[in-house]
Design a protein around this nucleic acid. Sequence first.
RNA 1: GCGAUAGUAGCUCAGUCGGUUAGAGCGCCUGGUUGUGGCCCAGGAGGUCGUGGGUUCGAGUCCCAUCUUUCGCCCCA
Length: 428
Amino acid sequence: MITTPKYTRDLLPAEFSNDTSAQVHRFQFIEERARDLFRRYGFKEIRTPIFEHTELFARGVGTETDIVSKEMYTWKDINGDSLTLRPENTASVIRAYIQHKMWGQAETVKLFYVGPQFRRERGQKGRFRQFYQIGAEVIGNSDNPAIDAECIEMIMQLVADVGIGNAELRLNSVGDAESRPRFAEMIRRELAPKISSMCGDCQRRYETNPLRILDCKLDHEVVAGLPSTLDLLTDDARQHFETVCRYLDARGISYKIDSRLVRGLDYYTKTVFEVVSGSLGSQNALLGGGRYDGLSKELGGPAAKGFGFALGLDRFAMTIPENSGDQGNPDLYIAHLGAAAFERALVLVQGLRKKGIAAAVDFETRSLKSSMKLADKLKARYVLILGESELASGQWALRSMKDSSQSTISAENWLEEITNLVGAEEAV
RNA sequence: GCGAUAGUAGCUCAGUCGGUUAGAGCGCCUGGUUGUGGCCCAGGAGGUCGUGGGUUCGAGUCCCAUCUUUCGCCCCA
């Protein structure tokens, strides 16, 4: 039997999946809520290729990151190009911003994306080799803290809209280009006497990227003893961060400042944040993001500033309440008896579907009993019973599966009567 | 890449010390008299016990290998 590749999975309709966190209607529900928010906040959708030139991610994400150094699906195309399945989407969006010279059209560009990303990681709860992200980016001349605050506001609104209650927002600033060397210098100075006893990763990071040591879980006691990097921010970066905090306060958005929060992508500057949920297990980040003022230039574009975030749809789907989303069951099922009724039913569903009603009909003619069973299994809200006596009398029976009540539909006015009854409740 | 778990029916699982035709619940199909779902009752279909090798008179059960799952480390969404 051919199955899904390692650590990938099918997202299925609810009736085919016991694993609620892999049911498509939950993903659709989250996407719908997100799209509605993006519309209100003025974000337009962008769809970038699922693969790009490898160089884009190497330069954009950073060669020192885990993602680029060991998690990318990279292959050589026939013409010799090195191509890579996108491990994240921000670099692609910035690439598109540059390629299409968007800065010439609008001072501030607001884009969002929805789609699969690929990283060759070992699977685990909430982590897959093909996973889905929704993200948004604000790109332009301005690095006004109001942008940071508005994006965070929007994303926290989404968290609330989909019904996630126990999420915590963590906030930090990783500083600007001038702050970074101060962090590194401080960390090297403080850790010089202790580094030989720290873990292998930290010893390597000590040389290559000292900031990442803050992320270490093994030597967290040593890390906890370090001075806060927030004290080392340049005036500009500090002021920016304080303003973001003030703007969030004004909106009534609560957050926890975590000076050890370091993100694994190299492009972040100043504001970084993530939202975690206690109910996720070890991979507890629901979403993450921040500011990346150097990325456009790094990729050969203008010196545009940027702010963005990505949320893990798979993890959202695990966290939203049990009954979220509409499984798409029929509004009405037609139980037909006999050849004449069957042919009539085929035309009736066409009319109902044109009116926006989810009408179902079985292609086999069967007993009324098994038709009713099927309607029950399909979770149809109503059953229209169409048999010989109904056709003869012009009085059709419409049964509510919820309360077992039955009413009569007249053959002359059937479409209106049914739409009124079935469609009216639909709107509720 | 490292560590740990598990793999028996569509699903969730039981299966004793190695010993006859491998079980249960749920689901599915059929029936319980005329054209009415759920509840109940009866019957039925469905399994190379992940795969390959080995030990043995005999392997779902023991050994080795391999694949896959899940969870943790790492890292991220």
